[in-house]
Design a protein around this nucleic acid. Structure first.
Lengths: 215, 215
DNA sequence: TTAACATTGTTATTTTTTTAACAATATTTT
DNA sequence: AAAATATTGTTAAAAAAATAACAATGTTAA
């Protein structure tokens, strides 16, 4: 297998988006796509698309564009793990359930296999195919099921404690959707996403009457 | 009022985060904060914090740090609108409800004042203080209530249609949480957020055994 | 069959963002 | 009172990302 020299982080993000856009095209029985078409779908410039494609070592055909299936396959080789990775959702509130529905049937390589909550009414039930365990079982299940990734959708004031449990349980990556930033050791990958920041940013640009698109 | 020379986009994002962190500190009766403390809370470097603070024209006191109240006030002056902005949530599914709970009582300047859904069981009811209207009322309510910002939490296959309605209704900013990218005219601010991309990015770095933190 | 065109692939340039370096200085310690 | 220290504020440098420029070339049109 060819070693892929480290891709820019932004390119990784876009690869995921390219794939989704390409899958939509495939669903419409499209076979080839031009850089400007893909760019248009994702609010990017054609140059950026071509450059990313260059970076992953793929080539299209002149005047015909890129072969959609091939590109999907190649992106998969780069960003997916062969075995597939299991994901747990911590906190089965509205947001946790939203994440599960979101994923339902969408991806094969990433699958949500467990949810955790503190509420006894939710525990030991199955939500959209995903079993919900009591949060006390977190460490046990994460280890036994070998789950490397967790999505935190608990209330902000529980974020720190849950993070600690996750780290102790050996989790490798955390996506933190709570409003509270958390800390993890250096060998754990952490990504924070804050809905309020997103909205405040929009508010700022709306206030400024700014015209640009920003993804 | 001093004209603020255009701030970097990333700084705007961080200002929102600074404020939230500062509010937490304020809640703990802290009065001053050092750049390295703020940095530590948000996975940033102290230099970056100081630089941002410099850019907004604030000054701390040597060996004492920054006055928390003052800084919160200043950030508000920069990123908030004086009158406050109204926000609508389109789609009262799990994600829409999550957004509403998230905001409940948190912000004063941004307030979710309306939700829309197609489901008759949800229409004309109030969820967490927010009235839900039928989606056919979208244009009417958005105009009459003067709502400039919308959060889209509908299923992906409705995203395009809803976006069109929003634009026609004169919306100024859209936060798109559906998995489907949409298009808006140049005078509308659009921000797309894709949960799957976030997760796939984590998966990639977990796969790589990458050690860094990424916000 | 030649010219015009559309598209890719790649290098170069510019812009944006982050990081480093370090001067200035109030506070604490000796 | 002098030295050491911790911290801010700012300029400079580096790194990352986006954009532009343009050569190459197969395709279509004249």
């Amino acid at each position: 297998m060819t070693i892929m020299p480290k891709l820019p982080e932004k390119t990784i993000e876009r690869l995921s988006q390219y794939r989704r856009a390409l899958l939509i095209c495939l669903g419409k029985n499209k076979q080839y796509i031009f850089s400007h078409e893909l760019a248009g779908m994702l609010h990017l410039t054609p140059v950026q698309v071509r450059r990313d494609i260059m970076l992953i070592g793929y080539s299209g055909t002149l005047r015909q564009g890129y072969e959609i299936r091939e590109m999907i396959a190649l992106i998969g080789k780069i960003i997916d793990s062969e075995e597939g990775l299991k994901v747990a959702v911590i906190g089965l509130g509205n947001l946790g359930r939203a994440m599960i529905s979101y994923f339902n049937g969408k991806r094969t390589k990433l699958s949500i296999v467990a949810a955790f909550d503190i509420n006894q009414e939710k525990v030991n039930r199955v939500y959209a195919g995903v079993p919900c365990y009591h949060i006390d079982m977190l460490s046990k299940i994460i280890r036994s099921e070998n789950i490397p990734i967790a999505i935190m959708t608990v209330p902000g004031d529980e974020a720190a404690k849950v993070t600690e449990s996750l780290v102790l349980a050996g989790i490798k990556g955390i996506l933190n959707y709570t409003p509270t930033p958390v800390n993890v050791p250096a060998n754990t990958y952490l990504q924070e996403y804050d809905m309020i920041t997103s909205l405040e940013k929009i508010a700022y640009f709306v206030k400024q009457g700014n015209r640009e698109e920003h993804i």
